[in-house]
Structures are given as structure tokens and as C-alpha cells.
Write a protein that binds this DNA or RNA. Structure first.
Lengths: 200, 200, 200, 200
DNA sequence: GAGTAATCGAGACGGTACGTCTAGTCTTCCA
DNA sequence: TGGAAGACTAGACGTACCGTCTCGATTACTC
């Protein structure tokens, strides 16, 4: 796996994999322990036992470190595909309940919020996020919905991206803005109501 | 209007209204001109022609300044109520189109993103935001939906908060994550699809 | 007793003697407890239970407060005249030993050093010091030496100011620069050697 | 030449000699132009084109900067030894007249007073001053007086330190306290009178 | 294998901003 | 009106990080 974006100069073949991993691990560890606001490059370097220059050589911004760190966190648990038991509502509820559980695990919540902050202000990072993290996940979701369409459980004329947004948008928004509790009940309500609009 | 949170000590009755307004104006102006990342308390103080201590005396964090600044921005344009022409879909599209237009106006987008960032990391501020900004707006939205229920245009058994989330969540989420363009067409699609699920 | 120098405006007849005394006492107390470097007008005002303005109204500088405070410290113990037992050397040793003892008493040493610092940099204060504190003392010293001249114990052609400087200068200088210990032995040596040059 | 005192941590071998010299020069320049009271570390850093941290890294206090600055000022003009023409009085007058001239040159007077102020309040600095500046000079003075003893112009039983204090103490004291003008006549009087006490 | 070129840990550098502290002024209310 | 209280503008304090830089010491390719 390669870093988000990198200067042309350094010869990547010589890159120390040890240092790279130490930096990403330290970044994740620190963002969980001291929080995003107090996460500093200097702190990451020290915690990783690495010179500051080694970080600046390979990453253009704090956000890109977080991105790579996050990437290394999620790619380990690549599911492959969403469950398909034939019961669309049940499958979606399963996935979304797992999502809110994850979002409430501090080890995932804090880095995710940190990355989120960077994305909000950095369009380049946002694009990278969209391409490398969001889009693959979104494709899996669309796949599942496409299957539902083929099974006659979902209207054919629904835009799949809108459908995904309708299902996941409310939950993510509630997570971000903390406008209410992220319970399984809420997930179920959203899925049921949204599906009523998606059914044929 | 009172500030977000304030230390017990200072005597608020002696507070300089001139300084307060200058600070909020300068904060809004600066966040729009230099961006959130380069927004500094020192910069706000200088731009407002105010001593740093005056800021630290009355606001506990940069986020709370932004909050107050944002509050002073929105309370000027209090709508009172959402439009009600009898056509729910049209009314919602009108409101949401206005929302996305606003979210794409740099003078609103940048401060909003800045405030957003603070909210993501500061639960206290998030609670304040929920109470003082989000909830009043949400109440207006619920009112319009309640009227639709009474007019038989919306199912009676729908949770109004879930309905609001279903309509606004996808849009806000796309704004935050920049996962796609915020067009009027997208708004219309979301409204139409969501309403299908909300109809009786 | 009046303050060192004062603005023309305030009507001194209305001045609160209570506040004045509280300020001078607090100044002396604080300079002894926290040291000169950390002596602040604000601190004096708080310790004296007095508004800052009351200080600024009546004293032009921190040095002038110290001066007045010091004045109130020394005028209580006005001796009147130096001892005259007929034995010039013994009398001088007595006075100078008392002086070095005083200079080594923290309650006197610290305020004295503080005042000293102000004098070094403020010619106006230096002049005031010379006139109101140094000169009266110097006059007493000259008196004693004049008596010695009359008694034939000291040469008639010696400049009395030079004589005083010769006797007190070395001791004060050693106190200021801490170039050596201020012992009674040192005092005796200085007196004996200096007197050899002053004798007829 | 090394700085007054330095933290154990920083690696002195990496110290920038350019920055060090710029800081000392700026300190001397500023103390002469704006005076000691308005001499700030921030000002020195700016004038020297140096980061504040570079100053704080190598000097523990403003006084120690002044000390080093002063040291760099005086070591350039190392005399080696006091003049010895055989005429003790004339030689001393020459030296002391030069001293008072120097003390009245603003380029020397102001930094000297500034350093003096720090010494009065900082025993550590005072010790450093005594060892590195005062003692070497004093040794030269003692040398000259020792030569005078060998030449039979000065009593053998006089403590040389007391003799030095008797000659220089009055002058320095008058400089510090401004109790009178520092003229060549005064110098001559002090030398003549003191020498009367020091002769065999 | 020796030479060489780039990365590595380390940390000093010129800067900027932090949050605190004090200066000296101004305003309000009390006695 | 003087005094207690304390908010105000201004700006220095000493600290923390930024991103750049230079320094040997590995370390991995090239010849």
C-alpha cells in the first residue's frame, strides 16, 4: 500500500517499512490517547522513534498520515461483500447496526473523527477519501441494492447512489453532529422508512 | 444573546458590547478570508482591535467564538416557519435547494465547516449546537411535516425526527464528505425518494 | 511625609492615609516575600486591598513606591547623630558593623536592593534619593569626621565627602557586587586602612 | 567563549555561532538604544533575526545574555596589565580616569548598569560576574599594587583586596548611586587620600 | 568487496501562535 | 469626589510545534 500523495524526489524503493509502520501505529495510538487537537507531527515522530524529516519526506500533511493510518486499519477487515440472505431489510439492518457499533468504539471513532476533520477542510484529501475508501465501500452497497432490484425487492428506477445516501446519510449525519443517540432502534427505523420509499 | 459558556468570575454586566460584536464580526470575516486552519485567536484580536485577554475572558475556546459568531449570523435571518403551499414535495425542494445554495456560498460554507470541525471534537459544543441552533430549525421542519400529516400527505406513524433525518441527512452528509455534487437535481431526487417512503 | 513626585491633578488633602499606609506596607512585605523581580503594581494593590488606580493616582512609578516605603522604614529609626566616644576608629567600626548587619538582614536587604535597582536606572529617583535619604545620613557622617578634625584626629585638608566615600564606598560596593563576604573583620580592615590615609 | 550557564540537554556542538553573535550584538545595541527597562527577549530575537527559542535554548535569563554580551565587549580590549611607570599614584590615576571616562560613555554605561541590575538580584550571576569579569581585572590591579609593595611604595602589611576596594570602591559607588559627579578631580582626590593610608 | 548515494534518528534553526500575566487607562458604583 | 473593583487595549512572557535544515551513522544499491 502506498501513501496518499508523495513528492517526486524520494526513492520509494529505499523507504523503511519499519519506520512507516511505526509512524502509522503511533499516529493511531496517539489520536486515541491524546485526541485529535493535541496530535502533533513532533509527537508522532517521538512516539514512533523516528526523525521528523522521515515523516515530512513521505507525507504532505497530518491528514494524509491519518488517512494512511486509517487505511491500514480498515483494509485488514475487508469483508468482500455485504450479506445477502434474500431479506434486504434484515441485511441492511445488520450492516448498519455493525456500522454504528463501530462508530461508537473509541478506537475507531476518534481516528475517524480526526480524518473526518481533515476531509472537511482539504478537498484533495476528500477526493482521495472518496476514491480509495468511500467508493469501494459504496460499490459493495450498490451491489447489494442491485441484487435487490433483480430480486424485485427494490424499484428499478431508483438511483442507487441516492438510495445508499438515504440509508447511510442519516446515520453518519447523526454520528457527526451528535444530534441524537445512535441506537439499533434508530437504525431499524431509518432502514424501514427508507425502504418504503425504495420499494417497487 | 449570551455567549456559549463563560467562566463564573467575570462580571458580565460590565462586558463591552462593542468589543463582543467586533470579535464576532472579525471571526466571521477572517474564517472566510484565510480559512479555518489559519484562523488564530491572535488574528481575531488584532482584526477586532481588541486585546487577546478580552477574548480569553469571555470565550473558553475558538469553537465557542465560532459558535457565537454563527449564531449572530443566523438569528438575523430567522425565517419563522417553512413555506406551506400545500404541496409538500415542492415546499421541501424549495427549502433544501436554498440550503444547498447556502452551503455553497463561501461566506456561509467556510464558517459552517469551521464550526462543524469544532463540533465533531467537542461534545459540549455539540450539545450547545444541538440545543441552540439545530433544535429550533428542526422544530420548524417537524412543524411542516406535522402539517403534512394533518393534510393526509404523510403517514401518521412516521417518527418526525427520522423523517427530517431522511430528508436532510443525505444532503448534509454529501456536503461534509464531498462524495458528490450538491445539485438541485440531487435534492429533488432525495426529496422524491424519501417522500415515497413517508407517504401514507 | 510626601510621596517622591506626584501628578499635579489630585487633591492631596483628600488623600486616604489608610490606603497610603496599606500600599507602602504591602510593597515592603511583597518585595521581601516574592522578590523584586516579581513585585507588581497589581500585586501590591491586591495585597493592600486597594484599587490599582489609587496607586497610579499618587505614585508615578514602582520605584517611587519603593522609595516612599523605604523612607517609612528608615525614618522610624532616625538616630540623630553618630556616636562620638572620642575614639574615631572605634566609632566608625561600630557604625559600619551595624550597617553591614543591616545590609544582611533580609527585611532590609531586599527592599534596599530593589530601591537600588530603580535608582541605577532612574536619575530622577536617584536625585531624590540623594537629597532625601543619602544626604541627611552623609551630613551626620561628615559631622562626626569634622569633630575628629577638631580633635586633631584627622587631617584638616581632607575633603570630607571623599573621606566618607573612602569609608563607606568599599563596603557598599562589596554589598552590591557581592565580590566578597561582608564581615566585621573586613569592616575593621577598611576603617583602619582608610584612617591611615586620613590621619594628620 | 561559552555562555554563562546552559541547560544540560542541548548539544552545544550544534550551536550556531552566527546566531549567538547576532544575539549578543543585538542585545548590546538594544540596551543602548531603548534602555534596560524596555529591553525584551522578543525584541532581541527580532533584532537579531533569530527565533525566540534559540535564545531560551542557550541562555537561562536576560541577565545571562547581558553578561555574555558584556563579556564579548570587554574581552576584545584585554589590556594585559596595568601601566607601571614607577609612579604608583600617576598610574592609578591614569587607570581610574580611564575607568570613569568609560563609565560615562553611554555605549558602556547603559549595558553596565543593566548587567549591574541583574547582578544585584541574581546571586548566581553575581558569582559568575565575580569569577569571570571582576576577578581577572582585580588580579591585574593586585599585581600592580604588589609591584608597588616590592618597590617600597606601599606598605607590606596591607591586604591587597582591601587596597583595591579602597581605590575603586568609592568611584564605583558614586557611579552607581549618582551621589556626585565623576570627575577626574574626584578620582585624583580619592587616589591621593587612599594612597596616604596605603604608604609604608 | 568498496564506493556511493539516499534514508535514517536526532535536533537546532527561524518562525508563529499559544494562553498567561502585567502595564497603565477607563468606567462604574459605593460611601 | 476619592476609592475599590475590574474590564479594557497593548504587548512581553516562556512554551509548543511548525516545516526546513544540517549532522553523522547506517543501509542498500552500483561498479
Amino acid at each position: 500500500m502506498r501513501s496518499v500523495s508523495q513528492k517526486a524526489t524520494p526513492d520509494a524503493s529505499r523507504r523503511s517499512e519499519t519506520a512507516r509502520r511505526a509512524i502509522l501505529t503511533a499516529a493511531l495510538d496517539l489520536v486515541g490517547r491524546v485526541g485529535y487537537a493535541k496530535l502533533t507531527i513532533e509527537g508522532i515522530a517521538t512516539a514512533a522513534g523516528v526523525g521528523k524529516q522521515t515523516i515530512y519526506r513521505w507525507w504532505p500533511s497530518k491528514g494524509s498520515i491519518l488517512f494512511d493510518a486509517f487505511l491500514s486499519l480498515t483494509t485488514d477487515q475487508q469483508d468482500g461483500a455485504l450479506p445477502d440472505t434474500g431479506d434486504l431489510a434484515a441485511d441492511l439492518k445488520l450492516v448498519l447496526r455493525a456500522t454504528v457499533d463501530e462508530l461508537q468504539d473509541p478506537g475507531f471513532d476518534l481516528p475517524m473523527r480526526a480524518l473526518h476533520t481533515e476531509i472537511v477542510h482539504d478537498p484533495v484529501l476528500a477526493a482521495d477519501y472518496a476514491t480509495r475508501l468511500d467508493e469501494p465501500m459504496r460499490e459493495l452497497k450498490r451491489d447489494r441494492l442491485r441484487a435487490a432490484q433483480r430480486a424485485g425487492q427494490m424499484s428499478e428506477d431508483v438511483d442507487l447512489d441516492v438510495a445508499v445516501d438515504l440509508l447511510f446519510g442519516p446515520i453518519l449525519n447523526r454520528w457527526v453532529q451528535r444530534t441524537g443517540p445512535l441506537t439499533h432502534e434508530y437504525v431499524d427505523l431509518v432502514v424501514d422508512t427508507a425502504l418504503r420509499g425504495l420499494k417497487p
